[in-house]
Amino acid sequence: MINTRILTQEFDYFAPESIKQVVELLERHGEGARVIAGGTDLINQMKEEKMSPSCLVNIMNVKGLRYIKEDEGLRIGAATKLRDVRAYCFKSRYVALYEAISSLGKPQVWNMGTIGGNLCNASPAADTAPPLLVFKARVKLVGKDGERELLLEDFFTGVNSTVLQPTELMVEIHLDPPGDGAGNAFLKVARVGADISKVSCAVFLKRQGRTCTECRVALGAVAPVPMRVKVVEEMIEGREIEESLVAKASEIVSEEVKPIDDIRSSAEYRRQVAAVTFRDVFWKAWDRAIGGKN
């Protein structure tokens, strides 16, 4: 039944304290079991009957899932609250992630929602995805067959679907160290101040003087999964940056995206605005890149 005031569904509920227990519970309860972190996506989906798990395994009491540490880049526990990630990334070398979370909901959502939840929910518009993609994030998954690590790019398989196996949970997100001369930025276009993206875009780049030595571009809400635009990255990497090149690149962005019409916008609009957003984010990241002289 759809009732957004109350949760009419019945389910078993567990709040284990170790990753091992989580995996055991998921295994024991089979397909109907589901991890719940902040619940800011899942509870809504249950109220709307888009999800009907028979068992919820709350991971917020699990030790060792909520941390942020620098260790060959940045390691974030999957159940770390958006609030904490946001605070950490403010004025850090990962400012695009700060910008993304700032644009995601408002304090109520940051206080409840987690970074792992944002990724595992796998919305095409998940706002932490574009910055994490350009930081070449890897995600660590633990399941009954042990641990595996893969690139975030390979994690998403479609709208609300990922490679996660029913007995698996995400435990860590690991971002590459940005290195010197790096700049990054994120921007999103939405209808009102607190809203799901119509288009979002993150850029990470490295710069030496006027040359861009490394560039990664990712967009959200313009395809079934948050996407990297590698053709654009390749046309920029190693090149001297000029307005004409960025303009050309933004045209390609607009051709590469695969948006749809929905209640929030039209495909046509998204295509158009993806180009503009990319251009603005690119220049922002470019200006932020500190290395080299002009």
Binding site: T4, K106, R191, V192, G193, A194, I196, I263, R264
Partner: peptide, 16 residues
Amino acid sequence: TLTPSFSEYLVPTSVD
């Protein structure tokens, strides 16, 4: 109705 909640139907909030 394609806009049955405040996720689709947008009223300006304090930030707007």
